[in-house]
Structures are given as structure tokens and as C-alpha cells.
Design a protein around this nucleic acid. Structure first.
Lengths: 344, 344
DNA sequence: CTGAAAGCGCTTACAG
DNA sequence: CTGAAAGCGCTTACAG
């Protein structure tokens, strides 16, 4: 391996001390203009690039934000991640992502510990998983050192900085179906260990009960968020819940699967069957027919997470202490398209 | 900020030298069993986690692979990235991703230089962009130190390790349309600074010329890969190329946009109009009607890139030199679904 | 405005 | 099997 140029060599070449070179690369104003110019020229000529590892090791801060995130194949984690990465970059931080590649049970402590070894200034926990028993991070070592924040639900004993009204918007979209004149609303739920799946399911149940409808097991199918599972789910519902005239798929992908089966069987949407989804992925407006859904501003979620994390980091650097910022509340709105317009 | 436990403290506590602790955490066999046990117990009790930065700074290797990638909103870069991250993890490497968030012109040298500051063991350049004039990495400093590989096209003067037959499969899918009896095939192309867009376009043109068809500007619309642009593109084609009876959208998203407009206008697919896409994203089989497309094994692309990179890293570590591995050739296959089955 | 010294937390030869 | 010394490439007080 070819050796890389070091700060010491620049200092030597310029006939100054290492600190002076350090000041130049860090834009410290306490350098004479002539000195700065001479050093900078040598840096440029030798194509010198400071070693980030060394810099991070010796400095107080690494300007790094750890992120523990779900699989990027899902629109939510993906869109939030893109926003997190972009906004962190713009603020002078690097994101250190740690992606979970399976849907297996996760052990938050071990993941956070692994990330901690990289000395991030803060950690964002972006996994929407739920556990049968409450899970909290126990090790005080882990909690006290740097800010750790979560997306929504206070699962880990760490502050959640963002409250998304999943249940409320699910409730609203189901009410919308009733308002349109549909009577028998089935649901294709998400995997039950996802917190968001539970919330959306609860919203459906709440709307039913507000309409005085008795809860019925036949109205329920479960998917795994995938298109295939939405297709299977609607087929199962058509079979076991024959009076069904509308279906709430708990994400847009599953709604697409449902649309496909319904179209295939010649069931007319929205006249004979209403279909609604959740997320408002960019494709929704181009489904056949265009899909009514709940719009989630994932981009905003990501931005909020980064900015709260940075806020906490800066407090930590300045005062040696940090506290949870105020929780931001977001209420996703429903977007009505043709798939649910029975009255038209 | 609370202090973190260091190797020195473990050594002190255990009454051994730092090297011995180092040997324990690195699973070096040259440690007496009793010593190892005692040290390990203290490590566990104090919840010690070695500082990755310090380790990387002093060791020869960082076990890090730099990645320069396009926006993850596109299925290709995203799926490949997931595979790269997963396979690198499995092999004991961390991926250091650097995502481009805009579609603006990029300067490869500056991106590679920025990544280099993190001391990766190799770099994967995963941007499919093209430049008007040939772009090569000039700085010998950049090229000689660590392996840098690209996805396909030898854009940068660095080895490309994967050859995907984009043009050939585009050609095949257009021939498939002719075989089904379609006569007038329009195209919705991708942005022209994407290498893959050029290749797919060339495949379309090649098929036309093989069928003895004269090239006609009215048959062409350009999109930007998005669903919206596919919708606009097909509307434009319907307008300017009225005899059109089939359309090749250069990715599935744009094909979805096209399907939407065609359905909207009551044009029957596949009888009156054939539609084909490119990529075979998981949703394709559930479009209305299900979409004929070219299947790209993005997952495999990612795996190949990682494994070639690791191969080169290991050669570099062992022999202090590396060379470009053999290029792997992949020929994506077409997947025929209903959107193009005129003969049915 | 500039520099000599110490230190960040590890690993690498080398010696025994 | 174990350890004293030097070093990775920077930054941080501190002194002048």
C-alpha cells in the first residue's frame, strides 16, 4: 500500500509546526495570511487530505450520527433515511448507518453497543418494531453518554421526539369509507410486531366501534407489507368475508396487491369495492384506479430526527449535558383518489 | 460527556499489560487460558467496547469499503446497496456509503478524495452517470493506493468488474413486441446522462433497424425515471406518434405512468397497445395489466461488487498489490406478462 | 501569530 | 505466554 501524505510532512515541507498546519486545515483565523497561503499551496500541490480517523480520535467530537434502521425496501425507512443523510450532511455531520437485514427479533442493546464503538455523537433508533414484553435499555453506560432518540414510541426508555398520529389517520380513512356509503370494511393488517401495524389496526377498530359495528374475525387478514401478501390477503377476505364491500390495506404495497386481485376478478373499483392504503408512496396516484391513502411526510420525519439529534449534540458539547427536546406531533392527512369514491 | 472505559483501564484492573488485553479482544491464541478468562470477565463486567477509531488508526486495515452511490429512491441503486451492505457485513467489513442526493453533475475525483480521508480498504463507484466528455480519474495518488471498481462502464479509468447486457436485453424486449404483432413501437427513454438510459435506447434502435424500420423522432419521448414522467411521456407519444401500438418505457416506474394514462383513456392493453418496462421491480407483476419487463438481478450485482472488492483488498493486504479481477457478464432476461401479449 | 509537549486509544514489531 | 516501547495522525491546552 502506497503511503499517504500526513500533516507532519506538510509541516516539514512548509517549515512550520504541525499545529500551524492543523490551524490551516481547520480554518482557524489565528494564522498569518502569508503562512496560511504557503501552507495551503503545499497542501494543494501534494493533494493532502487529513486522516478522518486521526482527527476523530483526538478531537472531542466525531461529527457522526449513528442510525439503526430497518430494511430500505420499505418506503418509510428508506425515505426517512435519505432525508436524514441529506440533512446531516448539510449540517456537517456524517451518518453512520446500521441496517437490519432481516425481520428477526432484534436486541437493541447489542446494536447500540456496536454502534457506540464508533464513537458517534448521537444515535437515532429508527426501528418500528415492538416486543411482546416491554424492552428498555438497561445499561446506564449506554444511556448516559450520548443522546439516543427514537422515532415515535417510547420503547427503549429513550426519548421519542416525534409523535405520528397513525391510529387517528387510520381511523379517519376508515370513516371516509363509511361516509362514501361502504358498509363492510375488511382490513389487511401489517405484521403484528410492527408498532405502526398495531396502531393502524387500532384505528380501524376504533372507527368500526364508533359506527356501532361489532368486531368480527372474518374481516381481518394479515400481510407482511409486501405486494404479494396484499394479494393473498384480499383473496382470503373475499373468501371468508363475502359481504365485504371495502378493504383497508395497511400500506400501499398491500393495497396494490389487493387492487390486482380485484381487477383480475372483474370486481369493479370503486363501485363494488372500495380500496384504501396507507403511506402515499409516489406510485399511488398511478395505480388502477388511483389509490386513496394516508399521506406520510417521511422526508419531514427524517429531518426532524436529525435536527433534534443535532440540537442535543450541541447542548451536550456546550454544557456537557442534554435533555429530550419537545416532542413534535404530526397528523398525517388522507388523500382521496378514485379507489374509494363510490358516490361519484 | 461521561468517559468511556479504555483498554488501559482493563489492563490495570486485570493486572496485565495492554498488549495482553489487546490479544484477548482480538482472539489471539497466544494467551494463557487463565489470563484470558480473567481479562474477559473484567471486560464483560465493565461493559468494555474497544474504540473502533483507535483500532483503525493503528491497524493496517480499516475493514471498510467506501461506496459512492446514486439516490436510493431508484430500485437499482437501492437493491444493490442493500446487497452490498449485507454481504460486506457478513464478510466482516463495514460499508461507508456516500450518497449523491441530487442529479447534478458530479465530480468523481472530489468524491473519491472525500471518501479516501476515511481510509477505506477499497471503493465501489456505483454511479451510472455519463459525461459529455470522457471522465477519468487523473490523480495517481488516488488510483494507486486502494482498489476502486465500478459497476459497468469504464468511465473513470478504473476497472469495471461487471458487464450487464443492457442493450442486448432492451433489443430483445423490443423484438418481443414485434413478434407479438405490434408494428409501431414508441420509446420513453431515461435521462440521457445515465449510461443505462443510453444503452437501452440503443437496444431499441437496434431492434428497429433489424426490422427494417426507419428511425423517426416522433417515436421518442424522454422521462426522468419517475412515474410522472412516464405518464407525460406516453401522453406526448400518443399525440405526436398516432399510429403507435406499443411503447417501451425504459424503466418500470415510467411504464406504470404509461399504463395509468392508457387505462385512463380507455385504450385496451395489450390488445390496442402493448407496454413493456425494464427492471422487474417487485410491484410489476401486480400492475394492471401485469407488466412485461426485463428482470435485473440487482441483488446479484451488489454481491458481485462486494466480493470482487474484497478479493482485491485481500490481495492488496497480502502481496501489497492488486489487479482487476475478471469481468463478470450478466445477461438480464425478459419476463413476459400480460401487458404485451397481443396474441392471447 | 507560532510552537514544544502531551495525549486520544489502540496495534505492531521486538525481546524475553 | 507476556510486556516495555514506539507509533498510527491528528488535536488540545499551554506558553510565549
Amino acid at each position: 500500500m502506497v503511503r499517504k501524505i500526513t500533516l507532519a510532512e506538510i509541516a516539514e515541507e512548509a517549515g512550520v509546526s504541525k499545529q500551524t498546519v492543523s490551524r490551516v486545515i481547520n480554518n482557524n483565523p489565528d494564522v498569518a495570511i502569508a503562512t496560511r497561503k504557503r501552507v495551503q499551496e503545499i497542501i494543494d500541490r501534494l493533494d493532502y487530505q487529513p486522516n478522518v480517523l486521526a482527527r476523530r480520535l483526538s478531537a472531542r467530537q466525531t461529527f457522526t450520527i449513528g442510525l439503526i434502521s430497518s430494511n430500505l425496501h420499505h418506503i418509510g425507512p428508506r425515505s426517512s433515511f435519505v432525508a436524514i443523510d441529506r440533512d446531516a450532511d448539510a449540517a456537517g455531520y456524517r451518518v453512520l448507518p446500521y441496517f437490519l437485514h432481516t425481520d428477526d427479533p432484534v436486541d437493541p442493546e447489542s446494536h447500540i453497543r456496536a454502534l457506540m464503538a464508533h464513537q458517534p455523537d448521537a444515535i437515532i433508533w429508527e426501528i418500528a418494531r415492538t416486543w411482546d414484553e416491554p424492552v428498555r435499555i438497561e445499561s446506564p453506560n449506554l444511556l448516559s453518554k450520548i443522546p439516543i432518540i427514537t422515532m415515535e414510541y417510547n420503547l427503549l426508555g429513550v426519548p421519542s421526539v416525534l409523535d405520528v398520529g397513525q391510529q387517528e389517520s387510520a381511523r379517519q380513512i376508515v370513516h371516509h369509507l363509511f361516509d362514501e356509503g361502504y358498509k363492510h370494511v375488511g382490513i389487511i393488517g401489517g405484521p403484528s410486531h410492527w408498532q405502526v401495524a398495531k396502531r393502524r389496526f387500532a384505528g380501524w377498530r376504533e372507527a368500526l366501534s364508533e359506527r356501532g359495528i361489532t368486531f368480527d374475525e372474518r374481516q381481518i387478514a394479515y400481510g407482511d407489507w409486501s405486494v404479494e401478501s396484499g394479494a393473498k390477503g384480499v383473496a382470503q377476505l373475499l373468501d371468508q368475508f363475502q359481504e365485504m364491500d371495502a378493504v383497508f390495506a395497511c400500506n400501499d404495497q398491500m393495497a396494490l396487491g389487493a387492487l390486482s386481485i380485484l381487477n383480475e376478478r372483474g370486481i369493479c373499483i370503486p363501485d363494488e369495492m372500495g380500496v384504501v392504503g396507507y403511506d402515499d408512496m409516489p406510485e399511488c396516484a398511478f395505480f388502477w384506479p388511483p389509490l386513496t391513502t394516508v399521506h406520510q411526510p417521511f422526508d419531514t420525519y427524517g429531518s426532524i430526527l436529525v435536527h433534534k439529534a443535532i440540537e442535543m449534540i450541541e447542548s451536550n458539547v456546550k454544557y456537557g449535558t442534554f435533555e429530550a427536546p419537545e416532542m413534535t406531533v404530526i397528523r398525517p392527512e388522507i388523500v382521496i383518489r378514485r379507489s374509494s369514491r363510490k358516490r361519484l
